[in-house]
């Protein structure tokens, strides 16, 4: 649900207030970027797609109607469509193993910890990429962004019970894939 402050920001943005939309951008751009990045696994492409997600949202704010869903659900929906378009138009895909490890920020204190973290992240990302799109969305939203099943249900336009079932299947499949990976 939208809090009152966010509601008033959204109303101002609908009215064409660019600064108000800037506040929405500040609040949501990191999570949308992460969502896109985990799906395309390429920093520049993720930046480009994320920019277009917000550009699309801003240009279409005039027709936005508050239906009680969080504003992020609109952004996630645009992001999902943009990622699908990205894969539809892009003929060649990047191998996740070829990714520059420097793209993932290092927050660990020691070099060993940092390397271990990098390894874990790369492994999980590789496994996530092998899941089907729906499972990818649910894993990222539920376990990375820590959205509630009801929020995910609104974004994916599915019943909450279905989301819980899909979440269970997705994590089970991810576990199986991680066991298979060397």
């Amino acid at each position: 649900m939208l809090d009152d402050e966010e509601k008033s920001i959204i109303e101002r943005a609908i009215g064409g207030d660019a600064l108000a939309f800037g506040l929405l951008y500040d609040k949501y751009h990191e999570q949308i970027y992460r969502f896109v990045y985990l799906k395309v696994s390429h920093r520049e492409e993720a930046e480009d797609i994320t920019h277009h997600v917000f550009l699309n949202a801003w240009q279409n704010m005039g027709t936005y109607r508050d239906k009680g869903f969080p504003f992020s659900s609109l952004l996630y929906q645009i992001a999902r469509n943009k990622v699908i378009d990205h894969y539809r138009t892009k003929k060649t895909t990047l191998d996740i193993e070829d990714l520059n490890e420097a793209e993932i920020p290092r927050h660990e204190s020691t070099v060993e910890d940092s390397l271990h973290f990098q390894f874990q992240v790369t492994t999980v990302k590789t496994a996530i990429k092998q899941l089907k799109q729906e499972y990818q969305d649910i894993i990222i939203m539920r376990y990375v962004e820590e959205l509630t099943p009801s929020e995910i249900a609104r974004i994916l336009k599915k019943p909450e019970t279905t989301i819980r079932v899909l979440q269970h299947r997705a994590i089970k499949q991810l576990k199986a894939l991680l066991n298979e990976l060397p």
């Binding site: 751009h29 970027y33 801003w58 704010m61 992240v121 999980v124």
Partner: peptide, 30 residues
């Protein structure tokens, strides 16, 4: 697995990109 997934939250966009993207967005007409 869940801990690793949560740790993915540390992924953040480049600050230079963020500033540039924000500026471009707000300059574009609705």
């Amino acid at each position: 697995i869940l801990t690793t997934l949560r740790s993915l939250k540390q992924i953040t966009p480049d600050s230079a990109y963020t500033k540039h993207s924000r500026m471009l967005l707000l300059a574009s007409p609705q």
